[in-house]
Design a protein around this nucleic acid. Structure first.
Lengths: 356, 356
DNA sequence: CCGATTGCTTCATACGTATGCACACTAGTT
DNA sequence: AACTAGTGTGCATACGTATGAAGCAATCGG
């Protein structure tokens, strides 16, 4: 069917055997020579290298994987790439993984049913980064049972595993403190989903912060929803429909907050004069002049890169080079838990409440 | 070192041989039974299925790949994920690939040197989607030489291959027509890089459109730069420094345009009153109330999905189910080229020039 | 009652690389 | 000259699945 012999050089489907033949050595010697085995003589290495180059030899990843039981691939699981938040995790993750000699397989969890889980445990990846795990997900347990190493990134789950997260509770507190300090008393919130650790902890921290100041969070001023643009856009309309209206609103993350700001523009609500808005994460977009969002900053890039390093250390077995990092190691089953410190960033979407 | 026997069920590292043993058949029979080979008796299939389930057997992808020479993985190459444009390609790509039974490996081309190319041709992927190919890249030629199937998405290259693109020339013309129609005569442009087909063709079309209307594009009003937010932000400042100042500016894509709008906010420039801004692509962000960007729409989602389908058809050999699509097939070497129609979308960032 | 046909299964092997072990060969020691 | 130590290479095989070909049993036709 195919006439491959047309092109001058047929360097497709070249195996280590072909290289061996050309170099006048055995196949195992080719393998050793190219992998830098010190037992191979310099002279042989040279011959093999030349032969490999001449044939444009590239070792087959499949063969290598099968033999070594290592794929050098790491899976990354997110819910929805088009959410502006995730690229800021996936981008650095990719770069760090590449730096460590691993490739990235990207998965989005439409149907995290067992069907999808199968694709993860067929040994085609060495480990998995869970970037959007929900607390009620059965996946971590399944992964654990299958002994597929994984790490929680950003959100954590109930099954013990390495994790890298922000101190979300503290972050929520920070926002509460700032809003209180500015003089707000009628405060609203658009929290993230209850089944995410980020949503839950930020809510706990925020409520705690308000409670410490003796300020009540009226149920009518509270919304919950996914960490999406639309959540903020829709929730704002609802919050404006309450009486009295809140003078400030804390949003589960920046994407939600930007949804709020955008809706405010459409509805003619002045921010921050009529409503203070605070987000969480400090994604790059938050600092755009169009938003100037006051938010809680943490090092997203570092968080993602650390996740990559934790996982790779785990799957490659050399945990050693991670010990000295300043993490609050949890001795129990050897899981590592890295917590990033959040900082409040004051921009232009919050101020004192107007005296209405 | 590891004490794996602790957990009750040791369903890790289960192979088809284990299943075979439990089911009382041979390993090949297991393979055939689970793959639905009609030659296996119903009774055997049932026994094998039960055994597989009991052991929680999942076929090894590495073994399968090695044997079939098919990895069921497709690579996707982009420059920078954090650019808000790419997720809108990568997301749909992932979904469509998954639908077709393929997994996605994501690559970003930092150093597209031959070193990086090696990772692509080690037969660990069946094909590659080039989402950000530059016209001067040597990669397509290398892929072609290696006989790794690939498809151009959004941007096309010089090496013949399947491609799916927008009619960028026409899109550029559309914008020129609209701006002319609105009465603009002092028009500026922030074009994309010359070494991208999108940058080049949009520029050609736009220039043509202006020329047809007898309007000159002054060199001082022209900028070139990568399709990034910062490009727009920086170029705006420069354009405002010219005399006379343009009353309208066409941007290479939406991300650049949003950079312009954002900078305008910072600089206190009213859009569209002082400056009309038009983008290209109509990414979701363009329709946010914060921007309401007038732009050129095309079906990004469909473009990505079509790329996936074209490539999968190519690598799986069943090109048949693609023939009937309304594409302008290029007979030469059997490459398919799908062109999407662009449409102008009038929002709120353009209007008539102010009489100053 | 034997040869032919069909239906199901096993055998043998391929896929490409990596690695423990044995072997050959050289050099140095006694 | 034999013996040891050291060095470099090849042999055999493992990794897990898929598949053409051969084998086996049962059924059928004559």
């Amino acid at each position: 069917m195919l006439d491959r012999d047309r092109n001058g050089e047929a360097d497709v489907g070249i195996t280590s055997r072909d290289v061996a033949r050309l170099a006048g050595v055995s196949q195992p010697t080719v393998s050793r020579a190219l992998r830098g085995d010190p037992r191979v003589s310099e002279d042989t290495v040279r011959r093999v290298r030349m032969a490999a180059e001449a044939l444009n030899y590239v070792p087959s990843e499949a063969g290598r994987s099968l033999s070594t039981q290592i794929s050098h691939r790491i899976g990354v699981l997110v819910t929805d790439l088009t959410n502006p938040f995730y690229p800021h995790l996936v981008g650095p993750l990719h770069d760090e993984l590449e730096r460590l000699g691993y490739r990235m397989m990207l998965f989005t969890e439409r149907s995290e049913a067992t069907a999808a889980a199968e694709r993860l445990v067929d040994r085609s990846i060495d480990g998995l980064v869970l970037a959007t795990s929900t607390l009620d997900s059965g996946l971590p347990a399944e992964l654990s049972r299958r002994q597929l190493p994984f790490v929680y990134l950003n959100r954590e789950g109930t099954v013990p595993a390495d994790a890298i997260v922000v101190d979300n509770r503290r972050g929520g507190e920070l926002v509460a403190e700032e809003l209180v300090k500015a003089g707000h008393t009628r405060i609203g919130a658009i929290f993230g989903p209850d089944n995410t650790s980020t949503g839950r902890d930020r809510e706990i921290g925020f409520r705690q912060g308000l409670a410490d100041a003796g300020i009540a969070l009226r149920p009518a001023h509270v919304r919950h929803g996914p960490f999406e643009f639309e959540t903020g856009a829709q929730a704002l309309a609802e919050l404006l429909d309450t009486d009295p209206v809140p003078t400030a609103v804390f949003c589960g993350n920046d994407v939600v907050a930007i949804g709020v700001i955008d809706a405010a523009r459409r509805l003619g609500v002045d921010i921050p004069e009529q409503l203070s808005v605070v987000g969480f994460d400090d994604i790059p977009m938050a600092s755009w002049a169009s938003f100037e969002l006051s938010t809680v900053r943490h090092d997203l890039d570092e968080m993602a890169r650390t996740a990559a390093r934790l996982l790779v250390a785990r799957v490659s077995g050399d945990d050693a080079n991670l010990e000295p990092s300043g993490v609050d190691g949890n001795g129990a089953a050897g899981q590592r838990r890295v917590t990033l410190e959040p900082h409040f960033v004051a921009r232009r979407t919050h101020c004192e409440p107007s005296q209405s």
